[in-house]
Amino acid sequence: MHLSYCTNVHPAEDLDGVIRQLREAAGPVRRAAGLAVLGVGLWLPAPLAARLASEPEALARLRGTLDDEGLEVRTLNAFPYEAFHAEVVKLDVYRPDWTDPARLEYTVDAARVLAALLPDGADGSISTLPLGWRDGWDAAADRAATEALAALGAELRAIRAETGRTIRLAVEPEPGCTLDDVDDVVAWLAARRDRLDLDLVGVCLDTCHLAVSFADPAEAVERIAAAGIRVVKVQASAALHVERPADADARRAVGAYAEDRYLHQVREDAPGGVIRVDDLPEALAELPATAPWRVHFHVPLHLVPEPPLASTTDVLRTALAAVRAVQDVDQVHLDVETYTWSVLPGAPVDLVDGIAAELRWANAELLERAEQPA
């Protein structure tokens, strides 16, 4: 697997900002992590993706910076459209959805940029939102999204014919969305295999989202494979786990993670079925708290929360092992996606040191350990 870290952790909205983040963060992270080459899963806001797709000089400037800093790009995160570090993001991250032509245009621009940045012989991937947020989604919206993804498939085939580069779309299920979990995305894609090219459209398995759903990670991966669908990308991420959410200490500890920028969906693994709420304050006010919780808050992989909280790196390990068991992973992109450093409770962490430590952990625990003989 190719390891990278996602640059949506950095608040850059234009080319100068992206180049600055590469020189001041990604390059220093590579050196601090002791890597000859570092993969970066670029996040390009939509206006910048459009500029890079249409201005060869701007694209050459970006490519030169990547080369100077020892960085390579095999995957893009095209889930947030823009303004991912606004004071309040919440539901805005799901707009525009796949019914809006702007979403298709953005993704095509991203694909053209990625085709120009890929190393020789490498396939590329682009992760995207799971169609849209669930509220108001109806049959008309579903038809529009299907047509948009079919049109994207035609564009990806044209890019492959023009450039020789294969770019795949990775649809990322997320709690609360139209495609809430792995079962939803598998069913949706499988039902449309006559309209969508499933060689070019597959799944982005975000292991924080997977953990929040309380699905068995190995079984979830096996269902993807059984449907003839590809895991295109794995977003290495961990959720918060609260074993006894009724305890006062646990409620105080998890309450510290409630913040105003991002949505932190919570699920309770109740005996009668998983109970779902859309944000952490709502969970603290409304959930019965009689069974364990998982919280959609991307916890840095190498940081172990203080008890009574825990993280779900065990789900990440099991999911990766399952992916290795069902498909060739040479072109699966493993992207560390911890975008929450700026909203972590407690003292601020030096971002370069934190990302470098997280990448060292991922390399040792997810790649090197998997390659050791049993």
Results as ranks from 00 to 15, higher is better:
R360V: 10
R31F: 10
L149Y: 04
D142G: 07
A218F: 04
D135G: 12
R193T: 11
N77H: 03
R369C: 06
R324L: 03
A220K: 00
A46I: 03
H264W: 07
V29C: 00
L38S: 09
E82L: 13
C208A: 11
G176D: 07
S213R: 02
P101T: 13
V182E: 02
A12I: 04
V201Q: 03
L44T: 05
N77D: 09
R267N: 04
A158E: 13
D199I: 05
V329M: 02
R20G: 15
E286G: 09
G164D: 09
A253I: 03
E368S: 08
L334M: 12
L59F: 11
R165F: 02
A253D: 01
I167P: 06
I19L: 15
W133N: 09
A246H: 13
R369L: 15
L15Q: 07
H298A: 08
P173E: 01
P175M: 04
L118T: 08
P300W: 04
D247M: 12
A218K: 08
R317S: 10
G273Q: 04
P28Y: 11
A356T: 02
L117H: 01
L280Y: 06
Y339H: 11
V349S: 05
A289I: 01
N363P: 01
G176F: 04
I159P: 02
G153Y: 06
D120M: 03
A291T: 02
A36M: 08
A321T: 09
A78P: 03
S237L: 05
A148V: 02
R244C: 07
D328T: 09
A141Q: 12
E13T: 12
V88Y: 05
D68V: 14
T166C: 14
P288K: 08
R230M: 05
A86G: 15
V274L: 00
L263I: 13
L263C: 09
A32E: 15
T207C: 03
G41F: 03
V40P: 05
V89A: 04
E13A: 14
V234N: 01
A190G: 10
H333G: 08
A58S: 15
A215E: 06
V304E: 15
